[in-house]
Lab assay of single mutants.
Amino acid sequence: KELVLVLYDYQEKSPREVTVKKGDILTLLNSTNKDAWKVEVDDRQGFIPAAYLKKL
């Protein structure tokens, strides 16, 4: 599985998104959309803007 590093805090703005903190390391589920990547956070799945993430 692929991991990503969170570069900036992000507060979810819709039910399809998830809230993350800078420095979190998350499982990347889908990065086919260049604008928003799907990740898993504490058994929740949701989207975060790709600009907030860096592949490890």
Score class of each variant (00 low, 15 high):
29 L>Y: 03
56 L>E: 03
40 E>M: 13
32 T>L: 10
4 V>N: 01
35 D>A: 11
7 L>Q: 02
46 G>N: 04
1 K>G: 09
26 L>C: 10
49 P>A: 04
50 A>D: 04
30 N>K: 06
42 D>V: 08
38 K>G: 04
27 T>K: 13
54 K>E: 13
23 G>K: 00
27 T>A: 09
28 L>F: 02
11 Q>M: 13
27 T>W: 12
52 Y>K: 04
23 G>V: 02
43 D>P: 03
54 K>I: 13
49 P>I: 06
21 K>A: 07
9 D>S: 08
40 E>L: 13
35 D>P: 02
35 D>M: 13
53 L>F: 02
18 V>A: 05
47 F>T: 08
9 D>F: 05
47 F>I: 06
37 W>F: 03
2 E>V: 14
53 L>P: 03
37 W>M: 01
22 K>F: 04
53 L>N: 00
24 D>N: 07
52 Y>H: 08
44 R>H: 07
56 L>S: 02
18 V>Q: 03
8 Y>I: 09
8 Y>C: 15
8 Y>D: 11
23 G>H: 04
51 A>G: 12
14 S>T: 13
34 K>V: 12
6 V>H: 00
51 A>V: 13
24 D>G: 03
51 A>M: 14
34 K>D: 12
42 D>C: 10
30 N>I: 07
21 K>G: 03
46 G>E: 09
14 S>F: 09
43 D>Y: 09
19 T>H: 05
53 L>T: 02
13 K>R: 14
54 K>N: 06
51 A>N: 12
12 E>H: 08
27 T>N: 08
43 D>K: 11
31 S>Q: 09
32 T>S: 13
2 E>F: 12
50 A>N: 04
25 I>N: 00
55 K>G: 03
25 I>E: 01
28 L>V: 06
18 V>H: 05
19 T>C: 07
1 K>Q: 11
28 L>I: 03
29 L>A: 03
14 S>A: 09
44 R>E: 05
32 T>C: 14
44 R>P: 02
10 Y>N: 03
30 N>C: 13
28 L>D: 00
48 I>N: 02
40 E>D: 04
35 D>H: 14
42 D>M: 11
5 L>K: 05
35 D>G: 10
1 K>C: 14
26 L>I: 12
53 L>W: 01
41 V>G: 06
43 D>R: 12
11 Q>N: 14
2 E>N: 12
56 L>Q: 08
28 L>N: 00
26 L>D: 01
1 K>S: 09
19 T>E: 03
6 V>W: 02
3 L>T: 07
47 F>Q: 04
37 W>S: 00
24 D>C: 08
27 T>Q: 10
42 D>H: 13
9 D>M: 02
41 V>R: 08
50 A>W: 04
20 V>H: 03
19 T>G: 05
40 E>G: 07
33 N>I: 06
15 P>R: 08
48 I>H: 02
39 V>S: 00
16 R>P: 07
46 G>C: 14
34 K>S: 12
38 K>C: 15
22 K>Q: 09
18 V>F: 14
31 S>R: 06
36 A>R: 14
42 D>A: 14
35 D>I: 11
1 K>M: 10
16 R>Y: 14
52 Y>G: 05
14 S>Y: 10
17 E>M: 05
8 Y>M: 14
46 G>W: 12
7 L>P: 00
46 G>M: 15
55 K>C: 10
54 K>C: 15
56 L>M: 09
31 S>K: 05
51 A>K: 15
27 T>S: 08
16 R>V: 13
36 A>T: 13
26 L>Q: 01
16 R>Q: 14
13 K>I: 07
1 K>I: 12
7 L>D: 00
33 N>K: 08
51 A>T: 12
47 F>D: 08
3 L>G: 02
31 S>E: 10
30 N>L: 08
39 V>L: 02
32 T>Y: 09
2 E>P: 12
25 I>P: 01
17 E>W: 10
56 L>W: 07
43 D>W: 07
43 D>T: 10
42 D>E: 12
12 E>R: 14
5 L>G: 01
18 V>L: 15
28 L>G: 00
34 K>P: 15
27 T>R: 13
41 V>I: 13
55 K>S: 06
45 Q>G: 04
2 E>Q: 14
46 G>K: 05
17 E>A: 07
9 D>A: 06
54 K>R: 12
30 N>W: 06
13 K>P: 06
52 Y>P: 03
15 P>E: 11
45 Q>K: 09
8 Y>S: 09
24 D>W: 15
25 I>Y: 04
48 I>G: 02
9 D>Y: 08
23 G>T: 03
12 E>Y: 06
41 V>K: 14
16 R>E: 15
32 T>P: 04
52 Y>I: 14
5 L>W: 05
26 L>G: 06
42 D>Y: 09
16 R>I: 13
22 K>L: 04
9 D>K: 02
16 R>D: 15
39 V>G: 00
30 N>R: 05
26 L>P: 02
29 L>H: 03
53 L>V: 12
23 G>P: 01
35 D>Q: 12
39 V>H: 01
18 V>C: 08
43 D>L: 09
55 K>Q: 07
32 T>F: 10
2 E>C: 15
31 S>H: 09
38 K>H: 13
2 E>S: 11
44 R>S: 05
53 L>Q: 00
29 L>Q: 02
26 L>T: 01
13 K>W: 07
42 D>P: 05
43 D>I: 05
24 D>E: 12
6 V>S: 00
10 Y>Q: 00
50 A>V: 11
50 A>M: 07
49 P>W: 06
29 L>K: 03
54 K>T: 10
43 D>H: 11
33 N>R: 11
1 K>N: 10
50 A>R: 11
17 E>Q: 06
53 L>R: 00
18 V>T: 03
22 K>M: 08
28 L>R: 00
22 K>I: 04
4 V>R: 01
9 D>G: 05
13 K>Q: 13
33 N>T: 07
7 L>M: 09
17 E>D: 07
41 V>S: 09
25 I>R: 04
35 D>R: 12
56 L>V: 09
24 D>Y: 05
